[in-house]
Design a protein around this nucleic acid. Structure first.
Length: 360
RNA sequence: AGGGGUGUCGCCAAGCGGUAAGGCACUAGACUUUGACUCUAGUAUUCGUAGGUUCAAAUCCUGCCACCCCUG
């Protein structure tokens, strides 16, 4: 009896190739397409349609069944609500980390099991290893595409039956396989932007949810140099979008140093960037994979944002590992509250948590 | 009212008779399953304005306008 795998298909190359590989490996594959975002601003919801068309094409070519599910409500309640709340607090959230925890490995998992899945698969670039009764999340073979950062919040239960068919693949190979199979997605551009919402003018998008609350842009010394359109539109270390020109004595680019929520002021500087450096952070809501360390203090590596080199850090656990102080080996630029700190050793993703406070 | 100074792209700012540097902003791409960062490219037929001198003016001359100082 063939093992049944339910695969999350987005209509991109990665999940398309994952489907082909699973079929090749002799699994009984079912494709599931998620539609989690209802357009509210009139604009084209045609992308989701086009993506679903690709899913259909690929599934028909591979001769596997496919279904579509809609978790727009769950997405809104569990991901988007948090996203807006965080912005309202002046933080910079990472909705995609939650999207994985709450949707792709939430209702989707349930649905997959309901369809009789033995395994659940996605087109993520990351690996999975099972030993000693635990499931480990490992880094992808393609170091450049590694997506473990976004999966740092997954529990053992969620990972239990997960497969990542692309774990040993490099992007080029994936493209090549797509070509070989003649998949309609072979040359499709990688999708970017917030998961399910897609790439868009971020400022314009946020403006649908927040009133413009203008205020002063001031330098560290308190000199007013401009006007901002609302603090939620900016994030620490940001340069573009400030609209600030050069000054006679200092022609360097301006950047955001801090968001003063109480006074509705955006603090900026230019030139010396060391004001953005920090030496430690305090993280909350930490999820450890596969389980919390037995030592309350240890060294490992960490990333403070996706696509960053891993940094050497020292972790000091608090509250049974739910929270932690993380000290950096070297100063880090623009570590931002609301983002995730994700821990690694040489081979595995050890989990991660929300950056709640940053220490300079 | 008198004396001095300044007016070059949204912001700074070179140029000072030979046919508009540069930086920042901005725009567009690249990169990217968050937001950022980063990278590449583009961006003044025109120099406050009206005349004049000259083969040739942002650069010289004159009037006017605006702004900034100082003196009353």
């Amino acid at each position: 009896m063939k093992k049944k795998v339910v695969l999350a298909m987005s209509g991109g190359v990665d999940s398309s190739v994952a489907a082909a590989l699973l079929v090749e490996q002799g699994y009984d594959v079912i494709g599931l397409f998620m539609r989690n975002w209802e357009e509210e601003d009139g604009g084209g919801h045609c992308t989701a349609e086009a993506d679903y068309d690709d899913v259909k094409n690929v599934c028909n070519l591979l001769n596997i069944p496919y279904y579509t599910v809609n978790y727009a409500k769950q997405y809104k309640d569990k991901v988007f609500k948090y996203f807006l709340e965080e912005y309202a607090k002046g933080r910079t959230p990472n909705p995609d980390v939650l999207c994985n925890r709450e949707i792709k490995f939430g209702p989707f998992l349930t649905q997959a099991y309901a369809l009789g899945a033995d395994y659940i698969a996605t087109g993520h670039y990351c690996g999975i290893v099972r030993k000693n009764g635990f499931t480990y999340l490992t880094k992808a073979a393609d170091k450049d595409k590694d997506q473990t950062y976004f999966l740092n919040q997954l529990s053992q239960t969620q990972l239990k039956d997960v497969m990542f068919p692309l774990e040993n693949m490099v992007k080029n190979e994936v493209r090549a396989i797509a070509e070989k199979y003649g998949l309609s997605t072979a040359k499709k551009k990688d999708s970017t932007g917030i998961c399910f919402i897609g790439e868009r003018n971020f400022r314009e998008f946020l403006s649908n949810y927040f009133p413009n609350h203008k205020g002063d842009i001031v330098t560290i010394d308190g000199k007013v140099v401009g006007e901002h359109i609302g603090l939620m539109y900016y994030t620490i270390g940001q340069r573009r979008g400030l609209g600030l020109g050069g000054e006679k004595e200092n022609q360097n680019r301006w950047f955001v140093v801090e968001k003063d929520m109480t006074n509705n002021r955006l603090i900026v500087s230019h030139g010396d960037e060391s004001v953005l450096d920090s030496k430690a952070l305090f993280a909350t809501e930490i999820n450890w994979i596969p389980k919390v360390s037995e030592e309350s203090e240890f060294e490992c590596f960490a990333k403070f944002r996706y696509r960053q080199e891993e940094q050497k850090v020292k972790v000091k656990l608090e509250e049974a590992g739910d929270k932690a102080y993380v000290e950096f080996d070297t100063l880090q630029r623009a570590v931002t509250e609301g983002q995730y700190v994700v821990f690694y050793n040489e081979t595995d993703c050890l989990g991660g948590g929300v950056i709640d406070k940053v220490f300079k």
